[in-house]
Each structure stands twice: as C-alpha cells, then as structure tokens.
C-alpha cells in the first residue's frame, strides 16, 4: 500500500515536471520568417538561404532542444532540434535564427526542409504533437521581405503579425522602432498629469478598499455573540500569599537584574510593578506591554542569563 502511494506520487511529480517543461517551451514564438533571401544575411557556409527566427517571450531561459520545426501539419516531426546541443536554449527576450537550407547535416541551426511561400510553419513541442506556435507565410511575400511578429507595446506578450521590408534576423523585432516606456510617456503625457491622476486614483482605491474590508472585519469582531466569536476573557490571576512570587514577576526580576538587557529592564520592572499593584496580566491586548513565558520559547531559559556579547 505504502509503495503504491509512493509510486503514484512519483508519477504525479514526474507528470508535473513534464508539464512544467512544456509550459516553459510555450514561451517560444516564431518571431520572424524570410523565404527569398537575395541580399540579406549569409549563413555559416556563405549561402543566402531563407530563415526562421525563434523568440523567447519570457524573462527566463528556455531550452528548445527536442522541439520540432515543420511546414507540414501531417508531418509535425519534420525537423528535430537536437537535444544534445548545449546552444539549443534562449535567454530572456532573446532570439535565434534557423537557416532553411534543406540540409540538416550543416548543423543544429540548419533545417532539413526549405521553406515555401503560402505554407504554414509550425513550432512543435518535444512530444511531437503539441503545436506551440504556427505562422502563415503569404503566397505573395516579396523577396527580402519577412513575416514578422512585432510587440503591440501594450502588453509584453502581445504581438501583431505584419510584413516588413527591413528584416531583423536574430534581434528583437521591436528594436527598429522600439521606444522605452519613459519615452512613450514623454510623448503621450509630457506634463505628467495623466500618470499623476491615474496613480493617485489607484493608491486611493487600493487603500480605500483595504479600509472598507478592515472596517467590516472590525465591525464583525465587535459583535462577539455573532457567529460564535467569543471575546477573549481575561485570564484568572492566582491570588498570591504574602512573600510568594509569581513566575511572571520572577522572570521580570531576573531580566531586570541581567546587565545584558537594555530597555527590557524597564519593561520588566514595569510589568513587575503592574502585576504587584494588581494590574493583572495581558495576553493579547494591543497597546499594552505584554511579557509572558511561552511554551517552547527560550526567553526565560537559564542560558539567557549568560553573557550575550563577547566583551
């Protein structure tokens, strides 16, 4: 029975790990594709081939070894990216280029198929079935123009697809016209009033909601009879005989006599006097100083009376 539980747990953990890996790969995107390369970049063997750019949309590193590239939905496992290649990974918001030379013997980053206009390109997970991303290549795509996914600028993960006559293989597609958020704000809100108004509203709204919630919780707690909430009753303090010392007073005197404590000395004396004069003990009361021995705590331990600082 016990073994079967461990087995089930292991299976669950393993499947969770696989799931996590898949989630990680789902951060990949086909960032840009160029089919007719007549005057663009050269590959490692000096040839001008079409190329596919993969982009990591996340802020973490993604390993894509084991994934597949294909231009045929009936054969999603057309090109297998080797798992053994250590360079088959992408850093945060980085991209990498695969040359569609049709000859994968040239290296990891050369596909065994040539990309065609009018086809659809697929990026497939390492299970060979799950399509991570797909991109349609227009049949009328001009030479040296690419199909590119450009960030919308609204959300980091939102992209729009368009045709570009300025391909950017291997670099972030928004780079050509990219502006920092600060530059965008400078254009849209040069005097800062819009941001100020929004920010003040958000701060007020957040704290106002918090205020309402705790106002409500406070009112709820003020009605101890409702919903079975009971007000904490003061603990009964045992009447001491003359000369008898309670544990709290003993602890307080012990702390007061110790030279190692600073302000706690006065706190201890205050507690002792308060207790002596009949103030009672406060367990959980706001705004009232509380010192009490707690089970499991070492504060009243004898070792606490030893010297704390090396002098």
């Amino acid at each position: 029975m016990r073994h079967s539980r461990i087995f089930i747990l292991s299976i669950l953990l393993l499947s969770a790990a696989v799931q996590l890996r898949s989630q990680n790969m789902s951060d990949l995107l086909i960032g840009e594709v160029l089919v007719d390369n007549t005057c663009g970049i050269l590959d490692g063997s000096g040839q001008r081939n079409g190329w596919i750019e993969l982009f990591n949309t996340s802020n973490g590193t993604v390993k894509f070894g084991g994934c597949y590239l294909s231009d045929d939905k009936a054969d999603l496992k057309k090109y297998h990216i080797p798992t053994s290649d250590r360079s088959a990974q992408l850093g945060p918001r980085q991209s990498i280029v695969f040359y569609t030379s049709g000859d994968s013997s040239q290296g990891t980053f050369y596909t065994n198929f040539k990309i065609r206009k009018g086809s659809t390109l697929y990026l497939v997970s390492n299970d060979g079935k799950t399509i991570i991303d797909e991109l349609e290549i227009p049949a009328n795509l001009p030479a040296d123009n690419s199909v590119v996914r450009v960030p919308t600028g609204v959300k980091a993960m939102d992209f729009v697809t368009r045709i570009s006559d300025r391909p950017t293989p291997g670099s972030y597609n928004g780079d050509v016209d990219a502006k920092t958020k600060s530059e965008v704000m400078k254009e849209k809100d040069p005097h800062g009033w819009v941001l100020t108004l929004i920010a003040v509203m958000v701060v007020f709204t957040a704290l106002m909601i918090l205020s309402f919630i705790f106002g409500w919780i406070g009112n709820y707690n003020k009605k101890p009879s409702a919903k079975g909430i009971k007000a904490s009753k003061p603990r009964k303090v045992k009447k001491l005989k003359a000369g008898e010392v309670s544990p709290e007073i003993a602890a307080a005197i012990s702390m007061a006599l110790s030279q190692e404590f600073g302000g706690e000395v006065y706190a201890a004396i205050a507690l002792a006097l308060d207790d002596y004069l009949g103030g009672g003990i406060h367990d959980q009361e706001s705004f009232i100083l509380t010192i009490k021995p707690t089970p499991g705590s070492t504060w009243a331990d004898k070792a606490q009376n030893f010297r704390q600082l090396p002098r």
Binding site: G192, A206, M208, S211
Partner: peptide, 20 residues
C-alpha cells in the same frame, strides 16, 4: 481605525507633486 489608511494615501501626493 482602518479609515486612517486614507491619510496615508493622501500623503503620497508628495511623490506625484515632485514627479510633476
């Protein structure tokens, strides 16, 4: 006294005043 949260919110205008 959760209503006092609003005073904390009001004082943040110092941030946005300086921003402007």
């Amino acid at each position: 006294q959760p209503r006092l949260l609003l005073i904390g919110a009001a004082a943040q205008t110092g941030i946005f005043g300086a921003y402007l």
